[in-house]
């Protein structure tokens, strides 16, 4: 465990809390992509199957349970809550996210740490997480005005994986740990946020509304 890793996981948790606060307080999920949230549920389920097969960890296990519970809750709100589901931008959330699942599954089938059910699904979840934000970024580009909570949510979500990159650099030098699969996927994931980060920081510095081209 190192400070980067701890900060990364807390940032990830914070992003989810921001989203839950937004949905619960404004009773609205405007600007949030349900497809991205669906993909995150799939990411967490396929990644945390090891909850049943591996020894529980005082640190990881609570986080895994919270991530699973919150991601499922968010999808439940967006799909079934009578008020919230009316605010979902169904016609703008158009990204064909099913097209992301098959390539990740095929890639996981061929590139994984070990060809077992758990490891292949784990690899699938790593690849899927890298691209899961795409529907959300596409939705933001078509949103006329992005509310602050949504902007902060996406920013924290991108920042957490960037912090994981620092964690991996630290672990490479301090613990001589090499992990190609999460490293490359994490780089791709963070790179996808590059233009969002640029516009987010620009809008923050000029103290103006966040607007993606």
């Amino acid at each position: 465990m190192n400070a980067f890793r701890l900060l990364a996981d807390l940032t990830h948790l914070l992003s989810i809390i921001i989203l839950l606060v937004k949905i619960r307080t404004t009773k609205s999920c405007a600007g949030i992509s349900l497809k991205t949230q669906d993909l995150y549920v799939l990411v967490f389920i396929s990644r945390y199957l090891d909850l049943f097969t591996r020894p529980l960890s005082l640190y990881n296990t609570p986080f895994k349970l919270v991530f699973l519970a919150t991601s499922i809750t968010i999808v439940y709100y967006m799909r079934y809550h009578k008020v919230v589901k009316q605010t979902y931008n169904k016609d703008s959330d158009t990204f064909k996210h099913y097209f992301l699942i098959l390539p990740c599954a095929v890639l996981a089938f061929f590139i994984n740490p070990k060809f077992t059910f758990i490891e292949v699904l784990w690899s699938f979840s790593i690849y899927l997480e890298a691209v899961a934000i795409l529907p959300q970024l596409v939705l933001l580009q078509s949103s006329s005005n992005i509310d602050n909570l949504t902007g902060n949510y996406v920013f924290m979500l991108g920042a957490y994986r960037a912090l994981y990159l620092l964690n991996w650099i630290y672990r490479f030098f301090a613990e001589d740990v090499v992990r190609w699969i999460p490293w490359i996927a994490g780089l791709v994931q963070t790179a996808l946020y590059a233009d969002f980060f640029y516009y987010y920081i620009k809008s923050w510095r000029n103290n103006e509304r966040l607007k993606l081209p």
Partner: peptide, 10 residues
């Protein structure tokens, strides 16, 4: 072992 390691992160 390598496999155990790949699961020590979230």
């Amino acid at each position: 072992d390598e496999i155990a390691d790949s699961h020590d992160e979230l």
